[in-house]
């Protein structure tokens, strides 16, 4: 359904696109992070693509599955053209950071904070990058695969004879 959109995008950023695939009608481009803001600007402003809506920003931790460890995933939707596109950006474990797209899409504001909170992805240029779901004093990033399953960080101690586990 949005094969044309994928092809138009990859045609403009040949040097940036690492791979593409279209599974079950979902068209995905895996790209390098270097010119991310340029690419997202193109997705939004190109008349044939017209992705007005950034519907999701999230991350995946592929620890022990593949390299590089992290992937940040963007879902775009065009309200006027009724097509979708998924952009994936692989990130190395030693430097899980990439440019923020808040300047292009307001919706990225909280979604990037969520990815930062739960996966520790740093979005450079984000105006307010702090935790959104977990509490301030929480340490670490709980959806990372190396976060201890039984690790608890309660804000108040349990009653006598009780345990938080």
């Amino acid at each position: 359904m949005s094969k044309e959109a994928l092809e138009r995008f990859t045609g403009h950023f040949k040097a940036q696109v690492i791979a593409t695939h279209s599974d079950h009608g979902d068209d995905t481009a895996v790209v390098k992070r270097d010119r991310l803001v340029d690419m997202v600007t193109f997705l939004r402003d190109d008349p044939a693509l017209a992705f007005e809506l950034l519907s999701d920003v999230t991350a995946v931790d592929y620890l022990g599955v593949k390299e590089p460890r992290f992937e940040v995933v963007y879902h775009f939707y065009s309200v006027s053209k009724n097509h979708r596109l998924r952009i994936k950006v692989p990130l190395e474990e030693r430097e899980p950071s990439l440019p923020s797209v808040v300047s292009l899409y307001k919706s990225a504001l909280w979604m990037e904070r969520e990815a930062f909170d739960l996966y520790g992805i740093v979005f450079e240029g984000h105006p307010d990058l702090r935790r959104i779901l977990m509490y301030e004093e929480f340490e670490g990033h709980p959806l990372r695969k190396d976060y201890e399953m039984e690790h608890r960080q309660p804000r108040i101690p349990p009653r006598p004879g009780q345990s938080h586990l």
Binding site: M134, P142, Y147, M149, H151, R152, Q153, P154, I156, P158, R159, Q162, S163, H164, L165
Partner: peptide, 14 residues
Amino acid sequence: RNYATVQGIDTIIP
């Protein structure tokens, strides 16, 4: 049963 959830409120209040 995860990092976020209290395992029963009786761990906090009677």
